[in-house]
Computed example of a mutant assay.
Amino acid sequence: MTSQVEHTDVGAYALGILGEPDRTAFSDHLATCPSCTAELRELSGVADALAGIGPLRDNDGADADAGTGTGGRGPAEVVSLLRRRKAADRRARRGTFVIGAAAAVTLVAGGIAVGTSISGESGSVPVGHSAHGPAEDAYRAGTPLAGTGASGVTGGLVLETKGWGTHAVLELRGVKGPLECELIAVSPTGERRVVTGWAVPERGYGVPGSPEPLYVHGGVAWEPAGIDRFEVRTTGGDTLLTVTV
C-alpha cells in the first residue's frame, strides 16, 4: 500500500495489521475520506469484542496456530491470522484484498463470524465502500424520526428493535468541527446511556464544501418503549440535535 492507499485497507488499519509507512499513509488518507472514516468507526470495537473468546479456527476447521499448546485465542491471534491471509491474498491476486480472512474467520466458542469480504474486481463495487456504507444503507431502509437541531443542524434517527435492545442509526447534517460528539439515549426518568461516539473534522458534515451527511450507528440495551429521546451532544455539553421517540 506504500505506493497507493487502498480504501480496502481500513480493516487492516483497524486491527493494527498495517506497519509503517503504510499506517502513516492510511492515517493521512482518513483525513480526506469520510467513507473510510465511517467504516473505521464501525470496525473499531472488533478487537474488544474478540477478547476472551475461545479457540480460533481456520477455514479448514483446524485450530489456528495448532500445536502451540495454547488455549483460547484472542485479538492478537486474530490479527496474526489476518496478516497471513492478507499477505497470501495479495500474492495471489494483486489489486484485490479480502479482509476478515477471505473465506471468513470463524470464532467457534464465541459464535462470532468475521466475514467482511471486500472485492476490487473490475466493474464491481467494494462492500461497505461504495455509494453507501452500512450505516447509510440502514438509514435509507428505515423510517427516520426527524430531530430538532441547534441553528443549522438537522438530522434524524432510524430505530430497530433487537433482542438485546435498540439499534439506532443517525444521520447528521450542518455540523463543523473540530468536535467530539456522542449519541445519548435518555429514559423517561432521565437516565442516560451513550449509544456511540465520533469526531467531527474541521470540514464538517452536510455543510458548504463538505455536503455529505454523517451516518453513524450504535446500540443501547433499552427497548424503544423505554426511551424518551435521543440527544446528539458535544463533549463540551452542547446539544446539537434532539430526537423524540
Rank of each mutant, 00 (worst) to 15 (best):
T2Y: 03
E6V: 07
A14L: 04
R23H: 05
C36Q: 02
T37Y: 09
T37F: 12
T37E: 13
A38H: 05
E39V: 12
L43Q: 08
G45T: 14
V46F: 11
A47I: 00
A51F: 00
P55R: 06
D58C: 09
D60I: 09
A62K: 07
A64M: 02
G67V: 03
G72S: 15
G72C: 05
A76T: 13
E77H: 01
V78C: 02
L82N: 07
R83G: 12
R94E: 13
G95Y: 06
V98C: 11
A103M: 11
A104G: 13
A104F: 10
A104M: 10
V105L: 14
T106H: 12
G115M: 12
S117Y: 12
S122K: 11
V127H: 11
V127Q: 12
G128V: 05
D137H: 04
A150H: 04
T154V: 09
G155N: 01
G156W: 03
E171S: 15
G177V: 09
P178M: 08
L179C: 03
L179R: 15
I184L: 10
S187T: 15
S187W: 00
T189M: 07
G190D: 04
E191I: 07
R193P: 00
V194N: 10
V195T: 05
E202T: 15
V207N: 04
P208M: 06
S210K: 06
P213S: 07
L214C: 08
V216K: 06
A221V: 09
A221S: 14
E223H: 09
D228S: 15
F230I: 01
F230M: 07
R233D: 06
T242C: 03
T242A: 09
